[in-house]
Amino acid sequence: MAECTLPTLTTLDEVQRKSVLPEGYRADFSQLRTLDLTLPVKELIRRASSRLPQDIIDALVKGRESEEEGSRAFNTLDDMVKNIVLADGHVTPLCQDTGTVIFWIRHPFGLSQARAKKQVRQAVVEATQLSWLRPNCVASLSGKNPGNNLDPFHEGHPVVHFEEWEKPEIEIAVMLKGGGCENVGAQYRLPDVAIGAGRDIKGVRKCIIDAVVKAQGQGCSPGILGVAIGGDRVTGYEKSKELILRKLGTSNPVPEMDAFEKALTADLNTLGVGPMGYGGTTTVLGVHVEEMFRHPASFYVSISYMCWSSRRRTLTIAADGTPSFD
């Protein structure tokens, strides 16, 4: 393995040193209504754009080990690791497509969502100016690009999901979801005669296999799949995306679903699509599935495909104002 790149990232001290948050930063929780989240969110974007989570890196390295040394699949995975090390070292985007920027904010009672949204939007504008994000938000018909990543019509981008919870801390998760992988996502309506999928777990499995074969390398395989069974057309897709936030290697809390995920991951890796569709045994890094309610007449299977460069980060601001990043 002479040419194999080791996935050594910069130390957490180094990451801290490059942080846009001043040393010893504490958010002021005494006045939740006037709390300013702009700076911590900007730091969250910096880390999400340039530093890949460890579980993703580990899975890519494991994939490389499973490929024949010197094969195109092996070399491609090695290039991916090289790229991860470079982006982290230079604090530059891992991929030029910094995606649709999606936030999930969970907060205690008292936080002003209107203010928080303004601050998140400001952080996105500033991160774009610093080239941590590409200006990715254009008017659909004219293609006109305002250049600041803000939706030119309403407040649709960045996407911000809010939820008030009982806990005292604030949690902000971000995902940078590239357009290539978003394009290969799919929603099936069961029964699906074309692929012979009925309204049961076997049918769900067929949908997932079909989607991965159709995606080939176009979603930048090896991919990570979020799959929601049920819901309506909106909530199904929403859930499928949220499932990508789950760390690779963590178990599904439902034992039967966990077994299903593991067996399916192994099956999908026999398809031979491989990294970037070059052929090989590393087609997916993980499949995360969750069952939801449904209307008796509807049975949707919503699949979100995340590229190998699964850029997600979570910021937690504890009740004493201390920020931590995961």
């Binding site: 090289k82 790229n83 982006a87 985007p93 991929c95 030029q96 290539g180 070059y278």
Partner: peptide, 13 residues
């Protein structure tokens, strides 16, 4: 020609 998708930093070099 195929280039490695996602290798944005590596290729920019």
């Amino acid at each position: 020609f195929h280039a490695t998708g996602g290798a944005g930093s590596l290729l920019a070099q």
